[in-house]
């Protein structure tokens, strides 16, 4: 019996339904509620007051401190992406091109940090980076320094944690992308006189842009929304927007204030990512 177009459409809808439901329940509804709360008047004796107001947005949008912290959070995200990219690219290239029998093992080593919880990894870094930690202890005993280096409870410590925790996401994205590039293209370029660096710059790097794009978006989004790492390695002295949102919504009990911060951050990040994707897509189209 022939399958009618209606039946095909119905089966397509059925396949789409679980994902649509999932997104509706766990993304659209919570975000809608967040948006709703962000317009409610703040109260010190209840979750929020009846009615609607723009006061929360006006307060945050005109608060220089909020913008400073948001700017630092976004800059921290960009810096983490750049550092992850610089460290991950050679590693991903090696992994993608390797024919060693230990390739799988190397791959496991790269992604192994993902098998340990973020908090536990942070505590590991604390043991290393603390004033009385292993690194400072060794440097002091070797007479290289007179006083402990400030390796933790500052932006440096936070960046170390962020890069280590999120680097595997970049490596995974890049490896898949580089693997998809035919190695013959590089060999051909070299046989035609291109140096190794020129072959990389003109062929491998541009063709791996999809991997760079997906890896950088993943790392950027995870970094700017990170909570545990700035909290633990920043020692409550490195404030980021997620920490500020949690403080406002849960510690200060100001749900509308926290919700409006989250919405502002969401809109700015979506805008920035849209521009970034557009620019990279444009660059990739030029390759075709």
């Amino acid at each position: 019996m022939a399958v009618t177009k209606t039946q095909q459409a119905a089966s397509r809808m059925l396949l789409f339904l679980p994902a649509a439901l999932w997104i509706m329940i766990f993304f659209v509804l919570p975000y809608s509620f967040l948006g709703y709360v962000s317009f409610k008047p703040t109260s010190s004796s209840s979750a929020y007051l009846p009615g609607f107001t723009l006061e929360n947005y006006v307060f945050n949008l005109t608060d220089p401190f909020f913008w400073t912290i948001l700017g630092e959070t976004l800059l921290g995200g960009v810096a983490t992406v750049v550092i992850c990219l610089l460290i991950s690219y050679p590693l991903a290239y090696r992994l993608a091109r390797s024919r060693s029998k230990y390739r799988s093992l190397l791959y496991m080593v790269v992604i192994s940090p993902l098998l340990v919880g973020v908090v536990i990894r942070c505590y590991g870094w604390m043991v290393l980076l603390a004033d009385k930690g292993l690194i400072n202890d060794l440097l002091l005993k070797a007479g290289i320094i007179d006083a402990p280096l400030p390796l933790m409870y500052n932006m440096f410590g936070v960046m170390v944690g962020l890069v280590q925790v999120y680097m595997p996401y970049m490596v995974i994205s890049l490896t898949g992308s580089i693997q998809a590039i035919n190695p013959e293209l590089e060999y051909t370029a070299r046989s035609l006189g291109a140096s190794r660096f020129t072959a990389f710059r003109k062929i491998t790097l541009p063709m791996s842009l999809p991997g760079i794009m997906s890896g950088s978006i993943l790392v950027f989004v995870l970094t700017i929304s990170s909570y545990a790492i700035p909290l633990l390695l920043g020692g409550n002295k490195t404030l980021t927007t997620p920490l500020m949102i949690v403080q406002t919504a849960l510690d200060a009990f100001d749900w509308p204030g926290g919700a409006s911060m989250a919405v502002i951050m969401f809109v700015i990040v979506v805008t920035l990512l849209s521009i970034y994707i557009k620019v990279l897509m444009h660059a990739m189209r030029g390759l075709k």
Binding site: S44, K237, Q247, T248, F253, G257
Partner: peptide, 18 residues
């Protein structure tokens, strides 16, 4: 404290936690 917590935390972040 709870009535002014939002302001206190904001001021704390600016004065102490920086």
């Amino acid at each position: 404290f709870n009535g002014t917590k939002s302001r206190i935390i904001r001021e704390w972040n600016q004065k102490i936690a920086r």
